[in-house]
Amino acid sequence: MSDVTTTVFQPDTGVRRITTGRLRGQDIEVVFKKDALHYLLLAIDGPTARYLIAKAVTVERVAKRLCPVDTGRLRASISYRLGIDMDGVYAVIGTDVHYAKYVEFGTRFMRAQPFLRPALEYIK
């Protein structure tokens, strides 16, 4: 088996072709279509985004279950949002309650009661 790799990019169509190796005398060709890759990896309604949403919902649910409750304000404020930047789709899970960091990490007067970090570890 001879290993040969050829890469051809056609800017006008956005198609990238990679031909590599031989399998029982036949060439193996992989074709990447720019629009399809964009939808797969970067679209806010694409499969990657749907996967991130499923994971974010799980982290949010577990964090709410682990969150200590006094008035319920902290638990109710835990949420997620989906965003997109130059690197692709991302999810942010957290809270905007100012004292959340003290609950999560503790202070010298109060022990930590982590809820976000263990929720993130849960999905790993």
Rank of each mutant, 00 (worst) to 15 (best):
Met1His: 12
Met1Asp: 12
Met1Phe: 04
Ser2Lys: 15
Ser2Ile: 15
Asp3Met: 04
Val4Glu: 15
Thr5Glu: 15
Thr5Tyr: 03
Thr6Phe: 07
Thr7Glu: 14
Val8Ala: 09
Val8Met: 07
Phe9Arg: 06
Phe9Ile: 09
Gln10Pro: 00
Gly14Pro: 00
Arg16His: 07
Ile18Tyr: 03
Ile18His: 01
Thr19Gln: 14
Thr20Gln: 13
Arg22Glu: 12
Arg24Gly: 05
Arg24His: 14
Gln26Trp: 05
Glu29Ala: 14
Val30Glu: 09
Val31Asn: 08
Val31Pro: 03
Phe32Tyr: 15
Lys33Met: 12
Lys33His: 14
Asp35His: 11
Asp35Gly: 09
Ala36Leu: 11
Ala36Thr: 11
His38Cys: 06
His38Lys: 12
His38Trp: 13
Tyr39Ala: 11
Tyr39Arg: 13
Leu40Ser: 09
Leu40Thr: 11
Leu42Asn: 14
Leu42Phe: 15
Leu42Met: 14
Ala43Leu: 07
Ile44Cys: 01
Ile44Ser: 13
Asp45Gln: 12
Asp45Val: 08
Pro47Gln: 05
Thr48Ile: 10
Thr48Trp: 09
Ala49Cys: 09
Ala49Gln: 07
Ala49Glu: 10
Tyr51Asp: 10
Leu52Val: 03
Ile53Arg: 08
Lys55Phe: 00
Ala56Cys: 02
Val57Pro: 01
Val57Gly: 07
Val57Gln: 13
Thr58Ile: 05
Val59Gly: 14
Ala63Ile: 06
Ala63Thr: 10
Lys64Trp: 04
Cys67Pro: 04
Cys67Lys: 03
Pro68Asp: 05
Asp70Asn: 04
Asp70Thr: 06
Asp70Arg: 08
Thr71Arg: 03
Arg73Met: 11
Leu74Thr: 10
Leu74Met: 12
Leu74Lys: 10
Arg75Ala: 07
Ala76Pro: 01
Ala76Lys: 14
Ser79Arg: 08
Tyr80Ala: 02
Tyr80Gly: 00
Arg81Ile: 05
Arg81Glu: 14
Arg81Pro: 01
Leu82Pro: 00
Leu82Asn: 00
Gly83Phe: 07
Gly83Val: 04
Asp85Arg: 03
Asp85Trp: 01
Asp85Gly: 03
Met86Pro: 00
Asp87Ile: 00
Val89Ile: 10
Ala91Ile: 08
Ala91Cys: 03
Val92Trp: 02
Gly94Arg: 08
Gly94Pro: 08
Thr95Phe: 06
Asp96Asn: 15
Val97Thr: 11
Val97Glu: 14
Val97Tyr: 03
Ala100Gln: 06
Tyr102His: 13
Gly106Val: 04
Gly106Ile: 05
Thr107Leu: 07
Thr107Gln: 04
Arg108Trp: 11
Met110Lys: 07
Arg111Val: 05
Ala112Met: 06
Pro114Tyr: 08
Pro114Gly: 10
Phe115Pro: 04
Leu116Trp: 01
Pro118Tyr: 06
Pro118Gln: 09
Ala119Tyr: 05
Leu120Cys: 06
Leu120Asn: 03
Leu120Asp: 02
Tyr122Ile: 02
Lys124Asn: 10
Lys124Asp: 07
